[in-house]
């Protein structure tokens, strides 16, 4: 297992795509966090449902997950789909014919890059959001326990997304298809579904089990549930996310990785 892990880790870091995506993620999150912080900081005092104080800070920083999760998902899925796209899967399975071990090693191998992406993401949302909140809003709350916890869990969430990405890439090994589905789901399907579901009382709980909803619950803050309250407890949210990672990976193992290679 050690050697399989090392091999998978080397596969990731000997290509350039992951740090290209990290730079894109950082740039995107600085911009989004600044925009959100501005909308809170410059909101009229009687702005109704606009979060204030510590909640404004946490909600701003939570874009690392609600907006940034597409990047670790893509990084993770690429780790698997490039194997199929460039047919390196052949050589990979020649040296590791145990396909379950191969898959587990690949899921675990993205954790370091996932954590790094989490740290980059946290720095980006702080860089984009904190100055505006501090100067124009109610403060950046960087010493607040809840805010710090939320930021740390943001790092964990991003690493989990990378693992989910590997599982998803195994289920959908066609690289283009995997990226299209990830972009469509994260940028359109899930946000719309969460908004729509939250309008219907009977279905609002369902939104919490969508992967993005669960991850927001892990952070304890969400753009989509800014009025707060109806997110899952953190432990449940973590289980839901881990469930997605294991679920996708298991389905991929039973489909893609059971087939003949080549």
């Amino acid at each position: 297992m050690r050697s399989a892990l090392l091999a998978e880790y080397r596969k990731l870091v000997t290509t350039r795509i992951w740090w290209v995506l990290l730079i894109a993620m950082a740039g995107y999150l600085v911009f989004i966090a600044a925009a959100i912080a501005a909308s809170f900081a410059f909101a009229p005092a009687d702005g109704g449902s606009v979060p204030v104080g510590e909640e404004a800070a946490r909600t701003t920083y939570s874009v690392i997950n609600s907006i940034g999760y597409v990047f670790p998902l893509v990084i993770g899925s690429l780790a698997m789909t490039t194997e199929f796209r460039h047919k390196t899967i052949t050589q990979s399975l020649l040296v590791e014919p145990d396909r379950t071990r191969f898959l587990v090693a690949k899921v675990l191998s993205v954790v370091p890059v996932g954590l790094l992406a989490g740290v980059v993401g946290v720095l980006a949302v702080l860089l984009g959001g904190a100055p505006l909140l501090a100067l124009q809003g109610d403060g950046a709350y960087l010493a607040d326990r809840d805010v710090v916890m939320s930021l740390l869990l943001g790092v964990v969430a991003i690493a989990l997304w990378a693992m989910i990405g590997v599982g998803f890439g195994t289920l959908v090994p066609n690289q283009v298809a995997a990226i299209v589905v990830i972009l469509a789901f994260t940028q359109f399907v899930e946000p719309v579904a969460r908004l729509a579901l939250s309008q219907v009382d009977a279905l609002s709980d369902l939104a919490n089990f969508l992967p993005g909803g669960a991850a927001d619950a892990l952070l304890g803050a969400s753009l989509f549930a800014a009025d707060g309250g109806d997110l899952l407890p953190r432990w449940a949210a973590a289980l839901v996310l881990i469930g997605y990672a294991i679920g996708f990976a298991a389905l991929g193992r039973l489909t893609t990785l059971r087939r003949d290679i080549g």
Partner: peptide
């Protein structure tokens, strides 16, 4: 069957 972005040495080091 090589990743085009990997160097020749990188390819061997992976396996």
């Amino acid at each position: 069957s090589f990743h085009p972005g990997r160097t020749g040495l990188g390819h061997l080091e992976v396996f």
